[in-house]
């Protein structure tokens, strides 16, 4: 059977038509659904794979790399397809799929975000769990149509340098990011941290000053790169002691972790620290992590600081890692005691 023109697909018997649809890969099935009303209803009426859009990466050359997982109960729990959407101005090429290997695909399209939205609607999957930029963030990337895609999810940036304009664009438009992760250099003179708002912020390069750690509106802040010394963090703790709970903030600050801290003085100098008192708080701090399950941290070896407004925090400094936990619940329910970072 070599002819491919004029094949009466919809005249096939029910079982055969079902077999054909089920034999199609996820992208061809999406294309079939766009042919007509009838094809849409047929392509969508048989069992569909359970899919998840894992990530969308905005890459150089305006390409988008989308990772889509097919979830199975057994024997293989998950298969991940990598779809490279290449922008094309040739209409005849839109939607053309090229299978590079079993799970790697290339697809030409004029509007990658529309295609992803269409995919999401057809397979009834939520928008991507994470969005990443490996290229410059442009105004056109964050508009009314795409804002839903970025908000409430993980946003990561992995390019060499970020500009002040890019950071201002991101934080002035997006107010509901769950995890914001920057693996890029932040401009040395950047100081607009007040507009930063995300449930969890992960930074490769720490901010300019230790005070900036308090200016970001987040629940959890992690700084991985070297910058701060113990004297800087001593100043940070003193500043924190002078603060009071602010109602206008969206997030209640709970955890701050700074790694690779240089020891140049006594971290606790002139601070009213006290060892753990089991009557004041529990032994384990209930941590929240977007990447893993919730976990609990043993704070029995940490030192406590009491603020005038009644807020209690614990400082743990170990192996050049500074960890600061704020107890909004003094005796939380303990779940998992595995470490997380």
């Amino acid at each position: 059977m070599t002819e491919t023109r004029g094949f009466p697909l919809f005249s096939l018997p029910y079982v055969a038509l079902k077999d054909v649809v089920l034999s199609l890969d996820i992208f061809s099935r999406l294309n079939l659904s766009s042919c007509s009303k009838k094809s849409k209803s047929i392509a969508g009426s048989y069992k569909m794979s359970t899919l998840e859009i894992e990530s969308i990466n905005f890459c150089e050359n305006s390409e988008h790399i989308v990772k889509i997982s097919e979830i199975y109960s057994s024997p293989e729990p998950k298969i991940t397809h990598t779809l490279n959407i290449i922008p094309s101005n040739i209409e005849a090429n839109y939607g053309k799929i090229i299978e590079i290997s079993g799970f790697e695909w290339k697809l030409h399209h004029n509007s990658p975000m529309n295609l992803i939205a269409k995919f999401s609607v057809f397979y009834k999957v939520p928008q991507s769990k994470s969005v990443g930029f490996n290229r410059d963030v442009e105004k056109s990337d964050i508009n009314d149509e795409t804002i839903v895609l970025f908000n409430t999810r993980k946003l990561g940036i992995q390019k060499e340098k970020l500009t002040t304009e890019e950071l201002n664009l991101i934080f002035s438009k997006l107010h509901d990011i769950q995890v914001f992760s920057i693996w890029s250099e932040i401009p040395e003179d950047y100081d607009n941290y007040e507009i930063w708002k995300a449930k969890e912020i992960r930074l490769r390069d720490p901010p300019r000053t230790s005070e900036d750690l308090l200016r970001m509106d987040c629940e959890k802040l992690i700084c991985n790169g070297p910058k701060f010394k113990t004297s800087d963090l001593n100043l940070f703790l003193k500043k924190w002691m002078q603060l009071t709970l602010k109602k206008e903030k969206t997030y209640l600050k709970r955890e701050i972790a700074v790694f690779r801290v240089e020891t140049d003085s006594n971290l606790y100098e002139d601070l009213p620290i006290t060892p753990w008192n089991p009557n004041q708080r529990g032994q384990y701090f209930q941590g929240h992590c977007q990447y893993f399950h919730n976990f609990s941290i043993d704070c029995s070896q940490g030192f406590d600081l009491f603020r005038d407004d009644g807020v209690l925090a614990t400082v743990i400094f170990d192996h050049n890692a500074f960890k600061f936990y704020i107890w909004h619940e003094r005796f939380p329910v303990v779940t998992d005691t595995r470490p997380c970072y």
Binding site: V20, S39, K96, I97
Partner: peptide, 17 residues
């Protein structure tokens, strides 16, 4: 038949079917 449809965009599929 599925192989015949695979990789085709909507316009090409419309022609085939």
């Amino acid at each position: 038949i599925a192989r015949m449809l695979r990789g085709k965009n909507t316009q090409e599929m419309i022609k085939v079917i």
